[in-house]
Amino acid sequence: MALTIKEVEHVAQLARLKLTEEEKVKFAQQLSTVLDYADTLNAISTEGVEPLIHILPIRNVFREDQRKPSMEREEILANAPLAEGFQYKVPKIM
């Protein structure tokens, strides 16, 4: 299927990607090509086929409810672009 510029904008907004006007045009065209290719799946009937949600025949994998030491917060914060008072700092939300 062909994606419109509007659809590309919607998808980019959901995915938190900022696109220039040229990029929107380029991606609309490229994504449409891939979606056209994906549409070749319509050639086969998948009616009644169970979706493959998990490839492995395993189930119920657990750990026990036992505490282990957390990571040192200096370490967990070491890669933060911006932190203050041992917390991640982000610009205003609204």
Partner: peptide
Amino acid sequence: NALKVRRL
């Protein structure tokens, strides 16, 4: 649909 194709 792709998950179903994956099954096939």
